[in-house]
Amino acid sequence: MRFLGMFRFTVGETIRRGTLIFYFGIATIIIILFALGIGHSTTDPDIVTIFGSPFAHISQPGANIIEFLLLQLHSLSIFWIILFGIFGVAGLIPGMLEKGTIDLFLSKPLARSELLMARALGAVSGIAINLIYFFLGIWLIFGVKLGVWHWGFLSSVVYVVYAFVCFFSVVTIVGLITRSTGFSIMLAFAFSIISWGLELRENGLYRLWDNVVYHRLLDALYYLTPQLNAMLENSSRVIGKNPFIPSPAEFTYMPYLYSFFSTSLLYGLSVWYFSRQDY
């Protein structure tokens, strides 16, 4: 009941954030544009039209144009959700720690671990609601208007939400330690870039310094932090293969598995740290 109370409150707070309202608006515009614009050609049902103009053949040899479109929408959604998601939710933990707010919360019969986890889950759920809205909307339109019920696209939202749950563990611990929204936003952005750099370390960061200790340190960082970039990339692979990328990689569960452990560790550390602090 208490956990649920804090969870519901945080979801409400998250979806009222200006940045996420903006994301919701953009998602709605894209959904409406597709609802109004996409369809089959009246002369050739194999041709996909956009606002009446022929776009491409569905059964183009060597390329699935529907999957290509869905992959683009998936990438677009991820870009926006990372951008707006960070602005939208990075301040939730430092906001909770502000004088006058934290006093009230901690005076209630709610364990600190419950409070923190309800807050984190609420923040992620706010993001998830936005993502599900967009993915479900696009999936329905492609199904209804083109007759393509692409379950891979719909299921990819689960992987994106999971990636955000893992990513938020970094935002949580940074927010708890710095107690600053500004720092949390900056460090969350920095982490999303670092995650990308660590993913490509063998062809990038390794070359900066040819030292075994440095290389192992990068490896340790890669496995000790959520593999955001790898998870997001993999989430697109359940949709299909981009016809313009030669020999694209296969889907793997490994980044999700590794990130499960690093995320659990970070949330565990956050609870431990939060329980020991004076406010």
Binding site: M1, R2, L4, G5, M6, R8, F9, G12, E13, R16, E98, K99, G100, T101, D103, L104, F105, S107, K108, P109, L110
Partner: peptide, 29 residues
């Protein structure tokens, strides 16, 4: 069994007075 009014309390501005009461009531179980 305790109630607390802190010195510089802040309430979520997006909630109405009655919603604020209900929210804190929920936190009290």
């Amino acid at each position: 069994q305790c109630g607390y009014l802190p010195e510089s309390h802040r309430y979520p501005g997006f909630l109405t007075a009655v919603d604020t009461m209900i929210f804190f009531g929920r936190l009290n179980g």
